Amino acid sequence: MSEIMNTPMTPAAPAAAPAGGVLLQPSRGRVIAITSGKGGVGKTFLSANLAAALTRRGLRVLVLDADLGLANLDVVLNLYPKLTLHDVFTGKCALDDAILKAPGGFSVLLAGSGMVEYSRLTPEVRDDFLRLMEQVVPRYDVVLLDTGAGISDVVLFTLSLASEILLVATPEPTSLTDAYATIKVLATQQGRQQVRLVVNQAVRPGDGRAITAQLQAVLNRFVGAALGGERSAGGAAVRLIHMGDIPVDKAVKEAVMRRQLLLLHTPGCPAALAVGQIAGRLVDTVLKAIA
């Protein structure tokens, strides 16, 4: 999107008080979807390490691998599941049998990889997901949905199950373009009034705030027109909330290659500390009632 690349990057203004998002499923206020417009930006890395950081704060956390076609949460966590979400959906096992305890103390429900039958949002897939969410959400303080990348019908349906969207992007132009497209769809098709943004692989302090301001300006200009003048409480078509940056850190690659959580492999490195700060902001703004 040329409009993104041509918008100057300026420091973001101080955020206004959080505006209430559109809860598509009001009973699921503890569900946070972690997504991205482009693959390969660290979405699953953040899902796993954020779960560990929230668990350290005393919360009961489940990470649900909702990328049914290209699941890789098991690789990040070095787990070898005998039973997966596919077995739950097909009735081959009970839900409790498929939930595993991950390194870091949180629970995971893993999905099999390469399952073509889950590449489209069929009525069966939709019903399976809804039944699953009804069972798992009451059992945990927070459920993190590690979704697929992009704006397929399966990904968008998964996002509709969450009360909060945590979008992961990198400073690269392709990632920012796809992030913009994702936010636009969430605003125009799902009525989202706010999206939380994490910038991964930030090179300089302040990169994330500048990127957030840049994307916000483009959204105000183009998505506002598409919505016919509708605005959130903060005056924008859709409000971006900068949740933090994760800096470029060689410890991340080392942890990924070792298939270990960064918070366990190198807990004091800059990237691990940044994930901990993001977890703190989530607790303060989204999960404070149960923390």
Results as ranks from 00 to 15, higher is better:
Leu62Ala: 12
Asp65His: 08
Ala66Ser: 02
Asp67Thr: 01
Asp67His: 12
Gly69Ile: 11
Leu70His: 11
Leu70Lys: 04
Ala71Tyr: 07
Asn72Pro: 11
Leu73Trp: 00
Leu73Ser: 10
Asp74Arg: 10
Val75Phe: 14
Val75Thr: 15
Leu77Met: 02
Leu79Ala: 06
Leu79Gln: 13
Pro81His: 06
Pro81Arg: 02
Pro81Asp: 07
Pro81Gly: 04
Lys82Asn: 15
Lys82Gly: 15
Thr84Trp: 00
His86Gly: 12
His86Ser: 01
Asp87Ile: 01
Asp87Ser: 00
Val88Asn: 03
Lys92Val: 08
Lys92Glu: 06
Lys92Gly: 09
Cys93Asp: 01
Ala94Lys: 06
Leu95Glu: 07
Leu95Gln: 03
Leu95His: 01
Asp96Ala: 02
Asp96Arg: 01
Asp96Thr: 09
Asp97Arg: 11
Ala98Lys: 11
Ala98Pro: 00
Leu100Asn: 12
Lys101Cys: 04
Ala102Lys: 10
Ala102Gly: 09
Ala102Thr: 09
Ala102Phe: 01
Ala102Ile: 00
Pro103Lys: 05
Gly104Trp: 11
Gly104Phe: 10
Gly104Leu: 00
Gly105Tyr: 11
Ser107Gly: 03
Ser107Trp: 12
Val108Gly: 06
Leu109Thr: 07
Leu110Lys: 01
Ser113Leu: 08
Ser113Phe: 13
Ser113Lys: 05
Ser113Asp: 07
Gly114Trp: 14
Gly114Ser: 15
Gly114Gln: 09
Met115Cys: 14
Val116Thr: 15
Glu117Gly: 01
Glu117Trp: 07
Arg120Gly: 14
Arg120Gln: 15
Arg120Asp: 15
Thr122Trp: 03
Thr122Arg: 00
Pro123Tyr: 07
Pro123Lys: 05
Pro123Phe: 07
Glu124Asp: 03
Val125Cys: 04
Val125Ser: 01
Arg126Trp: 05
Asp127Tyr: 07
Asp128Gln: 12
Phe129Trp: 04
Leu130Ala: 06
Leu132Phe: 06
Met133Leu: 00
Met133Tyr: 04
Val136Ser: 09
Val136Ile: 12
Val136Gln: 02
Val137Asn: 12
Arg139Ile: 05
Arg139Ala: 02
Tyr140Cys: 14
Asp141Ile: 08
Asp141Lys: 12
Asp146Tyr: 09
Thr147Ile: 02
Gly148Glu: 00
Gly148Phe: 08
Gly148Val: 10
Gly150Met: 14
Ile151Glu: 09
Ile151Ser: 14
Ile151Gln: 13
Ser152Met: 15
Asp153Phe: 13
Asp153Tyr: 13
Asp153Thr: 15
Val154Ser: 09
Val154Arg: 12
Val154Lys: 08
Phe157Asp: 06
Phe157Pro: 10
Phe157Arg: 10
Leu159Asn: 05
Leu159Thr: 02
Ser160Lys: 06
Ser160Trp: 03
Leu161Ile: 11
Ala162Val: 01
Ala162Leu: 11
Ile165Pro: 05
Leu166Thr: 10
Leu166Ser: 09
Leu166Gly: 08
Val168Phe: 09
Ala169Phe: 14
Thr170Arg: 02
Pro171His: 14
Pro171Cys: 15
Glu172Gly: 13
